[in-house]
């Protein structure tokens, strides 16, 4: 029995390390591929040791298109995240803190936006966008991504608001604050870490979204996932360049996540500090 006890921390660390390796390996492999020549990349025996080259990066970075993909993704992801928060936060607050008849139904209605199969939304959107000239514009894609992200903003933020003590609003009411002031000045600041966490998730969902960007953005507003898909080409996959482009386009997101990971974890563990 005692032998088992002393084994447990070791087994636990083994599992944690194995999972970390598993999470890192594909990204490590991608980085390796980006430094290989086409010959090394296609070697019958995958090469762990090889002479690294930077040619793939030079080719990719000298192509102005990659900066366009990057700018498109940044504009769409930032704007749609901000809008989703602006629209979603008030709704989440009311759904979490106020009892009214349609509360549950309204919450479910928001959730159905995520359930709707993309094709059911895409085809009407496509027709509507062609008619209004929104097709292939940033604004059109931003609106579509707000619709995709609204549900996750509302449902996750609802959880954070529910965890706040009821005395917050009572105290605010005694101080003569209006309902809106209680929301904007009292409750919002308290859930700020949660907002940061949700914003990161919404940003990632928008940055990585493929299908709507493919159909609604098309060739005019190519985002990062579409830019990468273009590397596959028609005849042959240029693995080296594809990998280099993936790494280049991954770097800003990685930096973003690493910088904000504290907020993300703190946001999702808010309950602990209440």
């Amino acid at each position: 029995m005692r032998a088992l006890r002393s084994l447990t921390p070791f087994a636990r660390r083994l599992a944690l390390s194995a999972f970390a390796l598993w999470c890192m390996f594909p990204i490590y492999w991608l980085a390796m591929m980006s430094l290989k020549t086409q010959v090394d990349a296609m070697a019958r025996r995958p090469k762990f040791l090889f002479a690294p080259i930077l040619d793939n990066y030079l080719t990719v970075l000298s192509d102005p298109a990659i900066w366009t993909y990057f700018a498109n993704s940044a504009i769409v992801a930032l704007a749609s995240t901000a809008l989703a928060l602006l629209i979603g936060l008030p709704a989440a607050y009311v759904l979490a803190r106020y009892r009214f008849r349609a509360n549950a139904d309204y919450g479910f209605w928001i959730l159905t936006t995520r359930m709707t199969p993309p094709v059911a939304v895409l085809i009407p959107f496509f027709v509507m966008y062609v008619k209004t000239g929104l097709i292939g514009t940033h604004a059109g894609l931003i609106v579509a991504h707000v619709a995709i992200n609204l549900s996750i903003v509302v449902w996750l933020m609802k959880g954070f608001f529910e965890d706040l003590p009821g005395e917050l609003e009572e105290a605010a009411a005694i101080d003569g604050a209006t309902y809106f002031q209680a929301f904007a000045h009292i409750c919002l600041p308290v859930v700020l870490p949660g907002i940061a966490a949700v914003a990161i998730l919404a940003f990632l969902f928008s940055w990585n979204e493929f299908l709507f960007a493919l159909v609604l953005g098309g060739n005019d507003v190519r985002t990062v996932p579409l830019g990468l898909y273009a590397f596959v080409g028609y005849q042959q996959v240029r693995w080296g360049e594809l990998s280099a482009a993936s790494i280049v386009l991954l770097v800003p997101v990685l930096l973003f996540v690493l910088i904000f990971q504290k907020q993300l974890i703190r946001g999702l563990t808010m309950g602990a500090v209440k």
């Binding site: 996932p225 996959v237 993936s246 991954l250 997101v253």
Partner: peptide
Amino acid sequence: LRAIYLLPMAITPVAAVFTFRM
């Protein structure tokens, strides 16, 4: 460890899937 565990979610699925295809 937490930072490492976040990596797969941050990468663009298309890039991840190509890597797995290789």
